[in-house]
Simulated scan of single mutants.
Amino acid sequence: MELHDAGLLIEIARRGSFARVARDRGADPSWVSRKVADIEDELGFRIFHRTTRRVSLTEAGTIYLREAETIVEALDRARDNALSVSQVPSGTLRITCTVAFGQKILVPLLPRFRRDYPQVDLELVLSDASLDLVEDRIDLAIRLGPGVSGDFVVSKLRDTRYRVCASPDYLRRQGRPATPAALAGHDCLRFLLPGFRNRWLFRDGAGAVEPVEIKGSVVSTGALALHAMALAGMGPVLLASWLVDDDIASGALVDLFPDRQATATTFETAIWMLYPSRSFLPQKVRAMIDFLRAEAETKWRAW
């Protein structure tokens, strides 16, 4: 069996679907099915159980691919090591982050990254779901929150903070809340997420924390949607500073409580970089990590 055939089997086992792998590769699902059948005929045993919804490994397939995956990973590592002494970063870098962070922060950086590393092709997967780094073949994930854990390498990019904002038009119509507690009388824009919908927390300079119960007639799972609604004058909103700082600077939004920290869950939140644990980090991944770190140091200090 050829090395690329082993890679195909490993990918199917991780994705659990011929159709998903075919879609990722831009191939016809029937070609993937026939290819697997040919490999199984060559090996003399079945690798996968097939159902109408999912494929799963047989006992023989589990044993076989466990050994095959070790060999494939070792060969990939050997190739990366060899390339590191002879070539510039190259290959396809598959990176994922949230939709809002991707569109607001990451996408504007990509033209310069491509100029610096023209041999690195990019696959940008924007999703508010936490994708599985192995199953979804992610080289580098950027996640936001108080912390992350799992069987991968985690590195903090930088701390973040949140602001409660509203548009000048909204404040002219409804009045500016003098204190966080006054938000109880406003129609707030809320995240449709556990822990975000009904309460915001505020911390003053002395460290005292004030919880405020909020309500609102509009909720959304998307930060970009809430941002657009706040700009349209629909109400106060709690959003990450990296999403609203430009609007505050331009006057399109007003930071209602600039002397206080605000959050929905915890005040210790950050932007994290995640990548699969392995003994050697491919140059293409290292290039993006170093690029983002340089950006965070020079451009993101105000966050």
Score class of each variant (00 low, 15 high):
residue 10 I to Q: 03
residue 288 M to Y: 02
residue 159 D to E: 15
residue 255 D to C: 04
residue 267 F to E: 01
residue 254 V to E: 07
residue 242 W to V: 01
residue 259 D to V: 08
residue 158 R to I: 04
residue 204 D to S: 06
residue 97 C to Y: 01
residue 112 R to A: 15
residue 90 S to T: 15
residue 31 W to Y: 15
residue 24 D to R: 05
residue 243 L to H: 02
residue 245 D to W: 03
residue 104 K to Q: 07
residue 102 G to V: 08
residue 97 C to F: 01
residue 250 S to G: 12
residue 291 F to Y: 15
residue 5 D to C: 11
residue 3 L to K: 15
residue 164 V to N: 00
residue 224 L to C: 08
residue 213 E to P: 00
residue 45 F to A: 06
residue 111 P to C: 10
residue 64 Y to Q: 03
residue 24 D to V: 13
residue 205 G to Y: 00
residue 133 L to H: 05
residue 224 L to D: 08
residue 270 A to W: 01
residue 13 A to L: 03
residue 86 S to F: 14
residue 277 S to D: 04
residue 2 E to A: 12
residue 204 D to K: 02
residue 11 E to T: 13
residue 248 I to N: 00
residue 48 F to R: 00
residue 77 R to L: 14
residue 297 E to Y: 07
residue 162 Y to R: 10
residue 170 Y to R: 12
residue 237 V to C: 12
residue 139 D to F: 05
residue 137 R to H: 11
residue 114 R to P: 00
residue 129 A to I: 13
residue 111 P to M: 10
residue 259 D to H: 12
residue 18 F to W: 06
residue 77 R to T: 14
residue 146 P to H: 14
residue 122 L to A: 09
residue 161 R to S: 06
residue 293 R to Y: 08
residue 101 F to D: 00
residue 8 L to Q: 10
residue 111 P to H: 14
residue 58 T to M: 07
residue 111 P to G: 14
residue 167 S to G: 11
residue 31 W to H: 13
residue 59 E to Q: 09
residue 109 L to T: 09
residue 128 D to Q: 02
residue 132 D to Q: 08
residue 43 L to Q: 01
residue 153 V to G: 04
residue 113 F to Y: 12
residue 255 D to M: 04
residue 287 A to Q: 04
residue 279 S to Q: 08
residue 257 F to K: 04
residue 141 A to G: 08
residue 62 T to A: 14
residue 13 A to Q: 08
residue 203 R to E: 03
residue 189 L to M: 07
residue 210 E to V: 15
residue 266 T to M: 10
residue 11 E to A: 15
residue 126 L to Q: 02
residue 20 R to A: 14
residue 35 K to Q: 03
residue 102 G to H: 05
residue 194 P to Y: 12
residue 258 P to W: 07
residue 87 Q to P: 00
residue 222 G to Y: 03
residue 143 R to P: 06
residue 207 G to M: 04
residue 165 C to N: 06
residue 102 G to P: 06
residue 284 K to L: 08
residue 96 T to W: 04
residue 22 A to L: 13
residue 174 Q to M: 15
residue 242 W to Y: 14
residue 184 A to M: 10
residue 206 A to S: 15
residue 7 G to F: 06
residue 67 E to Y: 10
residue 76 D to T: 08
residue 40 E to K: 06
residue 140 L to Q: 03
residue 266 T to L: 11
residue 179 T to R: 14
residue 166 A to W: 01
residue 34 R to T: 14
residue 11 E to G: 09
residue 135 E to G: 09
residue 134 V to N: 05
residue 104 K to M: 12
residue 29 P to E: 12
residue 196 F to H: 09
residue 207 G to E: 13
residue 107 V to Q: 08
